[in-house]
Simulated scan of single mutants.
Amino acid sequence: MRIEITSDPVEFRARVAGFLERDPLRHTVMYTVVENEITGLTVTEELSYFASVHEGDEVVGVAMRTAGRGVWLGEMPERAIPELVERFAQLLPEIRDVDGSESAALAFAQGWAARHGTTPRLVLSERLYRLGELRTPPAPGAPRRATEADLELCARWVAAMARELENFPLALTESALRARIRAGRWWLWEDEGRPVSLTAHQIPLRGWARIGPVYTPPETRGRGYASALVAHVSQVIRDDLGADVCLYTDLGNPTSNKIYQAIGFEPVFDQILYAFE
């Protein structure tokens, strides 16, 4: 078994394409990150690192560490994790967390703790959902695509969401947010001419488009805006983009899990995030 690590997303995509295509839904986050770096939609001064685990000529696992984030584990044999810990520790001793399946993330966190004298702390449990039969709920108002005139509002709401959530995974520069708005992938729900909720989706890749972020300010919550907007964007993804729809939820937020299941999302896979303290 050997581990190969590169900061070149094109090289990584070519190396692991066949492996990822066996379960594109499981690796929706990795697909998005790699594609955004290749196309220039994500540009940072800090390098990302993409790891592939090989047995002979076969890829058997993947992982990555992107700018400003911890380690994200895709499908990964646990026997490879001790060496993966060592390789990432040599490259990036400042890594602060790991996200993956419960067993793989725990194994990585324990290995990191043993090497660095840290204590793993469970900070987030997530669930990946896929959309089954879509059920569109009623809500006052209507959806519209965000425009560049909404840039300041979208940035302010993303910052507010980051303050509410300890491990909010989205950190966008103004230029990155503008590019996503121009691409038509950010949406607002308006009621009486006033924006009241925000939803975005990622680029469709290998038949899947992932929804997120989803944010409603505290003062307009509880009125069905987010449910209606997610349902609308899901329909657009299916009808206009010809893709299936998925999203992640925080299992610590029973409200979001309930409303997404109510509009047709079905659970697929759970992930755990451990911080190193």
Results as ranks from 00 to 15, higher is better:
L172Q: 11
E174S: 13
A63T: 04
S7G: 15
G74A: 01
H116I: 08
G68Q: 04
W208R: 02
S101A: 15
E21T: 06
R178H: 11
D97L: 13
L188G: 10
S256Y: 10
L131H: 03
W189N: 03
L128M: 12
F168T: 11
L177N: 05
E166N: 05
R79G: 10
S103Y: 03
P213E: 10
T173S: 15
A89S: 13
E94D: 09
R69T: 14
E164W: 04
R65V: 09
G193Y: 08
I181A: 10
A14R: 11
L247N: 08
A243K: 03
T147A: 14
V233E: 04
W157L: 10
E164F: 05
M1D: 03
Y129E: 09
N253F: 07
D97M: 14
P218I: 09
P120T: 06
A67K: 04
I3R: 09
A231N: 01
E55A: 14
L251K: 12
P120M: 04
Q235D: 13
G252N: 09
D23T: 03
V85C: 14
L229E: 01
T119I: 03
E83R: 10
E4I: 06
G184T: 11
W186H: 06
Y49N: 06
L73W: 04
A113W: 05
L131D: 03
T66W: 06
C154H: 04
D57A: 06
L205Y: 00
H201N: 06
